[in-house]
Design a protein around this nucleic acid. Sequence first.
RNA 1: UCCGGGGUCGUCCAAUGGCAGGACAACGGCCUUUGGCGCCGUUGAUCGGGGUUCGAAUCCCUGCCCCGGAACCA
Length: 571
Amino acid sequence: MSDTPDTTTDTPRPEPTDFIREFIKQDLAEGRFDRVHTRFPPEPNAYLHIGHAKALWIDYGIALEFGGKFNLRFDDTNPTREEQEFVDAIIEDVRWVGADWEDRLFFGSDYFEQMYEWAVDLIKKGRAYVCDLTPEQVIEMRGAPTSPGTDSPYRNRSARESLDLFQRMRAGEFEDGARTLRAKIDMAAPNLHMRDPVMYRIRHAHHHRQGDKWCIYPMYDWAHGLEDSIEGITHSLCSLEYENHRPLYDWFLDQLGIYHPRQIEFARLNLTYTVMSKRRFIELVDGGHVSGYDDPRLPTLAGLRRRGYTPEAIKDFCSRIGVAKVDSVVDVAMLQDCVRDDLNRNSHRVMAVMNPLKVVLVNYPEGESEEFDAINNPEDPTAGTRKVPFGREIYIERDDFREDPPPKYFRLAPGREIRLRYAYFIKCVDVIKDANGEVVELHCTYDPETRGGDAPDGRKVKATVHWVAAEQSVEAQARLYDHLFMKPNPDDVEPGGSFIDNLNPNSLQVVNCRIEPGVGGAAPGTRYQFERQGYFCVDSDSSADKLIFNRTVTLRDTWARIEKAMGRKKQ
RNA sequence: UCCGGGGUCGUCCAAUGGCAGGACAACGGCCUUUGGCGCCGUUGAUCGGGGUUCGAAUCCCUGCCCCGGAACCA
């Protein structure tokens, strides 16, 4: 309809390319594969974090771009550490981010029978054997990076004997750890993973999905390639630490002579001012440093969701950071920029006062009130307007008044005139203090001629501040978050220290704010921009009689930067 | 020490033998009824040393540095 091009939704994004996509194009061109099929293979033993979102978005994004398929597969081969709770949480997170696995939700454990048959095949081929060594002996005989290992005395056991033993392992005849099935490769291989790796271990344990059906469980290296092969995955994308495992991935598939996907590794994501590992999350939660795995200060997807991050922002972030093989630490400012960018375009504005200072408009008629039209979203004309009530007594932000304003401070000060957004120009005529000399109230005059915010005589003010009516505003709790850690790298500690030492004591500040009445009853998850302050999201702890907001991210604050710079200059 | 990876602005990612570019950050300005958004600009990098080439971030040699690898974890 409009002849002005829409620049908000039509952001031209160059077709992403990276070494993985180049490999895939090459594979397609050379005929190694004639289609693309990826998978996201979390182990159901922890909550997903933004690093997983990166991997997920590489997997899913590539499938999408190449017109291929994408599977969600739980790599649940270790019964002693996996739980249904995590399966449910992960499914929720993956769906929230927006990856669509259609009808392809799989579990590695569903392939146990096929894996067993293939193991039997390998034994018969003389490429695997049952080993009676203890874990300690296995470690000792593996050798070291610089020295070869020594063959297990069971290495040349006959295929018939191994087969018999393996069947009895499955039947439950042996204790946990008594025997293993090992691949017969090369105990002198420079790659330690090739020194007769364990394929199966005995675990008399209940599996969250298989119950008590099995007492032998496959190891990752044995299982993963088989899972990929069974599902017809073309490109098995994983993180750098699996690079050393690739020869083994290939070896198993080659020995079996079955469909062979290609494994490609990329660097995992790190972010400044936070930590990104399950172990550390546990330490933070158990130590009471955060409220849980969905604490809005954590980079878990559950935490980010609760904080108010949008899936769009996370996806945008994932595409902005790209993919490579260098270990990288992305500035969390990049993530914040992504969410600001999304929320700026899509969230409704509202006025809320974090730290209220009462203002009495001494020339405003007592007992009167009126309403002003306020724009819901200047970035989106279709978002419309709303009414905001106004009266003789209002609150403004305490920080928007200075009795002794520093240079470049444009806001309210004695004798100075500013604009109340959408309302009137007001001028400060009196400052009321308590016995301690603290400012408790301001007396101002308003100019009725400036109704709506413009002066007929054309005079200008340098500042516009937000406000709420004293009577007709509602109270709410605001949880103001900052970086969880004080240092960009939380592991930057004194020798013997812990990342816990770098925790930011001010990462959460709880304040009672006053907010325009229209937001009363907003449902958890609802997002707003609190004008001049930041983006906020109704928390899940919120209820009808108690509104609670999480600050997703502050607005960019030029004044704060100026003030900080002046502070630096003084010192 | 052995094996496998990797070193480009402060950060992340491009440049695939042909003008080292973008984003974030920082800084300066314009605009503004959000000190927001937007717009304009500035600063700023090829790990070192040799070589090949008309021409090297890219190819070769060499040195240095960083990451990963010796669970019956994934």
